[in-house]
Nucleic acid binder design. Structure first.
Lengths: 353, 353
DNA sequence: CTGAAAGCGCTTACAG
DNA sequence: CTGAAAGCGCTTACAG
């Protein structure tokens, strides 16, 4: 009993099918069939084998099974945004979809490093993943990896896809519509748009939707104010919008609503408005984007915000990958999934103007 | 050439060692040895085999290798905090450590669901992970899974460990010392502590360190103010500390420093102070905890904060797991890793008081 | 210096 | 109704 004297924990060898077969007094083949509900044998034999498997704590070695089946029930998840709040709900949705179907997920953070990306992709392929999902932190940037012509299906979610790939992204223009139409429905007339830098594609998509909705409603569209994705920019934008001299042509009136490109900008806008003695939502309604709960719920008042439904998007991506792995074809192209507006208290009730 | 007519992309079969051997005109065994620098053969043969492997794009099937080696170069990462900002740097550190050593990571979110946890652990074990790392969002709560008596080594990081396990956590008391000593060094005399709810172990650890440091410095320690981990609580705490009637015994003086239990509380404190016309750091110095950059950098002024070095902690955990997997024993117990103070502008320079 | 054999743990035709 | 054989893709003693 030397093993019992060891100071280090000793890890027991896993029990194999051979062990089960021996204990049950049958061949390995029969044992396998009994456990997999394959082949024909008396119900008693089958049950006896199962019982001994259970009592021995037998769990089949997935490695061996995968080798045979050419299917590892494993998927690779590539991201360049381990820290970000976008990839998190996304990845959570992806995992959910996959886990529910018994597949495990290799998480790989490739950052912005092509070599790291290459390394991870090769490792995943070597481990015979059934497929790969590429995610990112913005939909207009490519991951630093080449995922074309892989031996396995690939899906893109919230990142710039290869041509002819299947991809899922949020419908940012639709999300912007939701926000601006909400303001219109409430009777707001002078709706400003304060958003991020021009280098982001979504900035233009949303700005266009903003203009479209205002036009459709016969309202004047001011030029969107582009800046950083920060609270500080929210402050500065308010200074520009509210501190300038009043114009005389009637168009220079102060906004009664601000649609912000993200929740941090909105936070800055709300704080700056309060510092000027302007009431939200009384004087000015504010809507954010991203629905970053920890921010949206801490603003005073709590912030109405556009939610990109990232978890649902991830779930859809996961499910589609699975069907691809299963041999079902999927039409290539970019599918845009709808956003939703989460209404809190920063827009108030319909106005009687 | 029917395959070329298919509408669905056709995934080429991976090339096997057998293919390489055939192409090079040697046996599979020889091919294997050539590629693994094993056995003896002429340098030319070896190079020729390697060259044909390269030209065929051969990559060994890890599944087969793992089956043989009883080592999958794969590790399971358990968490109940996919959304949180604590597990992210942690996981990033863990991944880094592992990836650098060629091991891939299965990410499993078990949430608070014991059944989900059980499921994930079994799936990982079936896939023959070499080891498991359990992480969480607070160090005084157990994951909803039983990780004792597994067939593989287990490491705990930033979560409540099983007895006799090896675990890594942040040294919260040490972090609190850093903060309070920083205030003392700056000459602050009346240092308050506004923190989270009593249900968190770290609240008491840090509060005790706070008292200890003040005592060591001959300064009065006020009772720590316990509340929620929120901005709103920061506001309320400032109201309690600064709006009450002045006491006459000299002990009722307003604080000149506030050490906060997290960055959100600190944000609330700073905002509330500004609203009262009090200057930070002029009148009151403020230190936060967590060093959540997106918050710490957005406060006005930017917030000095205690960083738990979570990425480093994760890295340490990953490395230790690897050495455990490699057969090196590791002493069981909880290892506390030091925090560091990230100085920004919310404490100012030494006072001349 | 190179190859045939056995085996990792399992499954699946194929015999009996 | 059950078992022997072949094989998934690889590696490692062991012969020659």
């Amino acid at each position: 009993m030397a093993a019992d004297d060891q100071p280090v924990p000793v890890f027991p060898k896993p029990v194999t099918l051979r062990d089960v077969a021996a204990a049950a007094g049958v061949s390995v083949a029969t044992a396998s069939k009994a456990l997999n509900s394959q082949g024909r044998m008396t119900a008693e034999t089958r049950e006896r084998i199962r019982e001994t498997a259970r009592s021995l704590g037998f769990r089949p070695n997935s490695l061996a099974q995968s080798l045979l089946r050419r299917r590892s029930f494993t998927v690779g998840l590539l991201t360049n945004d381990t820290y970000g709040r976008f990839s998190l709900p996304l990845m959570s949705g992806i995992s959910d979809a996959l886990v529910d179907n018994g597949v495990s997920v290799f998480l790989c953070n490739v950052e912005e490093d092509p070599r790291l990306g290459q390394l991870h992709v090769e490792a995943m392929l070597d481990k015979r993943v059934d497929g790969i999902i590429a995610t990112g932190k913005r939909i207009d940037r490519h991951l630093p990896v080449d995922l074309s012509d892989l031996r396995v299906p690939v899906i893109y979610a919230f990142t710039q896809p290869d041509p002819d790939a299947v991809a899922f992204v949020s419908d940012d223009a639709g999300g912007a519509r939701l926000a601006v139409e909400h303001f219109c429905g409430l009777g707001r007339k002078r709706i400003a748009h304060v958003t991020g830098p021009a280098s982001f594609a979504v900035v233009h998509d949303r700005a266009q939707a903003y203009r479209d909705v205002l036009t459709e409603n016969g309202l004047p569209a001011a030029e969107p104010l582009l800046g950083a994705w920060s609270e500080a920019w929210g402050h500065e934008a308010v200074a520009r919008l509210f501190d300038g001299p009043r114009r005389q042509d009637g168009k220079g009136e102060r906004p009664d609503a601000v649609f912000c490109g993200n929740d941090q900008i909105a936070r800055g806008v709300i704080d700056a408005l309060r510092e000027r003695g302007l009431s939200v939502p009384g004087d000015v309604g504010v809507i954010g984007f991203d629905n970053w709960e920890i921010v949206a719920e801490a603003t005073r008042p709590p912030l109405t915000s556009v939610d990109m439904n990232l978890a649902a998007l991830g779930r859809e991506a996961g499910l589609t990958l699975l069907s691809l792995v299963g041999g079902q074809p999927a039409a290539p192209g970019i599918r845009k999934l709808p956003c939703r507006l989460v209404v809190r208290q920063s827009c108030g009730h319909p106005m009687d103007g």
